[in-house]
Design a protein around this nucleic acid. Structure first.
Lengths: 233, 233
DNA sequence: CGCTCAATTGAGCAACTTCAAAATTAGTGG
DNA sequence: CCACTAATTTTGAAGTTGCTCAATTGAGCG
C-alpha cells in the first residue's frame, strides 16, 4: 500500500511556513534523503554561538529561543522560533559561525538538513533563493524595529508589545491563554530587562485588568489598553 | 575619442562595494541607461518611512542616516550609509513601503535605479541574488548584535562601541580624527540615548584621555581602553 | 555684529537594576 | 497520590543610571 509518509519533506506540512516551499519536488526528495531527524530536550542547545554549522534545522514541533549570553550572565532573546522556522540559515548563507545560540524552550523535534543541500538549491533554484531573500528581508525589518523600540520605548511599553507579539504569533488556547508558555525570565530576556522589572510590570497590567494570569500562563483581556500603551497614547 | 565615462555604472568604482558587482556587463549597461543621478542636500530625505519605493539609491558620495522618528520626537539611527551602499533594497525586495527614513547627513550624490532593473536581475542572475542574500545576512547579523548590545550594555559602553565602529568604518583623516563628522545628537541617536548623556560620556572619555576632540571632530587616542570598556573588563 | 543653532553644564526626578528574603509552584521519587 | 526538594515567582528596599528641563556658553554665518 502507498501511504503518505510525513517524515518525508515532500509531505511535511511544516514546509508551507518557510522558504522550503519554493523547492521543486525533486529537490525536496533529494533533501529528504539526506536529512536526519533529531529530538531535542527542553534546555538543550541546537547550536551555540561561535559554532560552525554544517547544516540548518527545520523545526517540526516545539519552540526554540535564539539568544546571546553576555559575560555578566544576561541572556538576550533575539527571536523565538516555532514550527516551520528554519534555523541556522543565516550562518550557512554567510558562511560564518553561528552568531546566536539556539536553545529549546520545550521538547522539540527538528530535521537537520546538511549545508550542501541548501547551497545547492540556492545556486540552482532562483525561486528558492528569492524566497529566502524575501524572508530575510522581513527578519531584517523586524530586527530594525526591535532596535528602534529598545531605544525609544519604556520597559512597560516593551512588555506590552512582547505580549501582543506572542499573542499574535502563537494564538491562544481554548481558555484564552497565549499558546506558548515562557518563564518570566524568558519574557524579560525578550523585552531586554531584568526579570523583576518584567514581573512588576505584569503585576501592574493584572491590576488594571489588562491581562489575566494563571501560573505562568497569560491571557490578554484588554488588548486595546495594551495597544494604547505601546503607541504611547 | 573614447573616454572613460564614470557616470556609467560599468565604470563606477562605487560598485565594488556592493552587490551590484555581481552583475554582468550587459546588466550594468541596461541599468546605467535607466538610472538617474540626483544631488541631495544635507538634511534632505532620500525617502521617508511609509513611502512606496519604486527604485533603489546607490550612494556615490556623502553620508546618509537610516532612522525612525518616534511620536515624542526621538530619532533612532539604525544605520549609517556611505559610498557604495545601496538603500531601499530591502523594501523593493519585500515589496513593502520603506520601514526607515533615509536622510542626508551632508551633501550627497546618489544614483536612482528603477525597481524593475533590480527585480529583473534578481530573477535572472543567481549570482546577483546570492550576493544580495549574503549582504543581507550580514546586515541581519549586525542588527541582531545591536539588539543584544542595547539590552546588555550601558550607555558608556555603547558610546565607546559607536566610536570604535565609526573609526573602523570611516577611518581617520590626516590629523587622526574620525573621517565622518556627526553632531552629538546624531551620535546619541545611534547609541540610542539622550544627547546630554552622550555628551557627558564623551566629556568623561576626554578626561581619561581616551579621546581628543576639536569642535565636533573626535579622535580616538586610547582604543585599548575603549575596547576594555566595551568588553566590560 | 547680531542671530541662530549646537554644545555644554546643572540639578531634580523617574525608571530601572540589584540584592535579599519570602512565598509559591513545579518536579521527583517513594 | 503524597511528601519533599528544587526552582521559580513575587515582594521589599536601596542604589544607580539615565532622562528631562532649564540655563549658559560657544561656534558658525550672513
Amino acid at each position: 500500500m502507498h501511504e503518505l509518509n510525513e517524515s518525508r519533506c515532500e509531505n511535511c506540512i511544516v514546509r508551507q511556513f518557510n522558504s522550503l516551499k519554493a523547492l521543486s519536488k525533486e529537490e525536496l526528495k533529494r533533501i529528504s534523503d539526506s536529512k536526519t531527524s533529531k529530538f531535542i530536550k527542553k534546555g538543550e542547545a541546537l547550536f551555540s554561538e561561535g559554532e560552525k554549522l554544517n547544516g540548518v534545522f527545520c523545526v517540526r514541533s516545539g519552540v526554540s529561543k535564539l539568544s546571546k549570553l553576555s559575560d555578566n550572565g544576561k541572556d538576550t532573546i533575539v527571536k523565538i522560533a516555532t514550527k516551520g522556522q528554519v534555523l541556522g540559515e543565516r550562518s550557512v548563507i554567510a558562511e560564518e559561525v553561528a552568531n546566536l545560540s539556539a536553545v529549546a524552550l520545550n521538547d522539540m523535534e527538528v530535521c537537520y538538513i546538511p549545508k550542501t543541500q541548501i547551497t545547492d538549491s540556492i545556486n540552482n533554484n532562483p525561486h528558492f533563493t528569492k524566497a529566502i531573500l524575501v524572508h530575510m528581508a522581513n527578519d531584517l525589518k523586524y530586527a530594525d524595529n526591535v532596535i528602534v523600540n529598545m531605544a525609544q520605548k519604556t520597559v512597560r511599553q516593551r512588555v506590552a508589545e512582547t505580549l501582543m507579539y506572542l499573542d499574535k504569533n502563537f494564538g491562544s488556547d481554548d481558555d484564552g491563554f497565549i499558546a506558548i508558555i515562557l518563564s518570566r525570565e524568558d519574557i524579560a530576556n525578550i523585552v531586554g530587562t531584568a526579570k523583576e522589572a518584567c514581573i512588576r510590570t505584569l503585576a501592574q497590567f493584572k491590576k488594571y485588568n489588562w491581562i489575566t494570569t494563571e501560573g505562568k500562563r497569560i491571557s490578554l483581556t484588554d488588548k486595546k489598553a495594551l495597544y494604547k500603551l505601546v503607541e504611547g497614547l
